[in-house]
């Protein structure tokens, strides 16, 4: 039992350490899907928004949040789903975008396509498909190093 309620800042710090189940190099807070953390009396309320409505990672994400917070001694926890405002890739943190690129996934750009190949940095890239291995990604290919790569779709 936690003697005193941890501060919201502490809780955000804990959530910052929970990796995204599909792209473990970024955290849930990097992804921008944790919309709010509040104490309602002695219950901790965490508001989460889905990336895509059918994303199968959503239930795993909720489970991971619960597991992480329980491990820190949070006993009363409520997870709230919020659809509006709808998730946008604008909420990806700058550090999250940098981590994606290091991992080999081109980060989203409002221009609608990757700036360059995440591996060789060539700007000569072409789209293979608007869809990819997960709902949030599209398939692209580098025309210089010829490697295919994932692009995080801008929505």
């Amino acid at each position: 039992m936690v003697e005193e309620k941890p501060t919201l800042e502490t809780v955000w710090g804990w959530l910052d350490a929970v990796p995204d189940p599909e792209i473990p190099v970024i955290s849930l807070t990097d992804l921008g899907i944790i919309r709010d953390v509040q104490w309602q009396g002695d219950t901790l309320e965490v508001t989460v928004t889905p990336t895509y409505s059918g994303c199968p990672a959503t239930s795993i994400i909720n489970l991971d949040i619960e597991t992480a917070l329980r491990a820190k001694g949070i006993e009363k926890l409520s997870l709230k789903r919020q659809l509006s405002p709808a998730w946008t890739t604008d909420w990806l943190s700058e550090s999250g975008k940098a981590k994606l690129e290091d991992y080999g996934i081109a980060p989203p750009r409002p221009a609608g396509g990757p700036q360059h190949c995440p591996r060789c940095k060539s700007a000569k890239v072409e789209r293979i498909s608007q869809f990819g291995s997960t709902p949030c990604k599209a398939q692209w290919r580098c025309q210089s190093c010829l490697e295919p790569f994932d692009y995080f779709k801008c929505i």
Partner: peptide, 14 residues
């Protein structure tokens, strides 16, 4: 194949 499955997934989520 992937594009169709992704579309189906979005629709099932909705």
């Amino acid at each position: 194949d992937i594009a169709l499955a992704n579309t189906a997934l979005d629709l099932i989520g909705q």
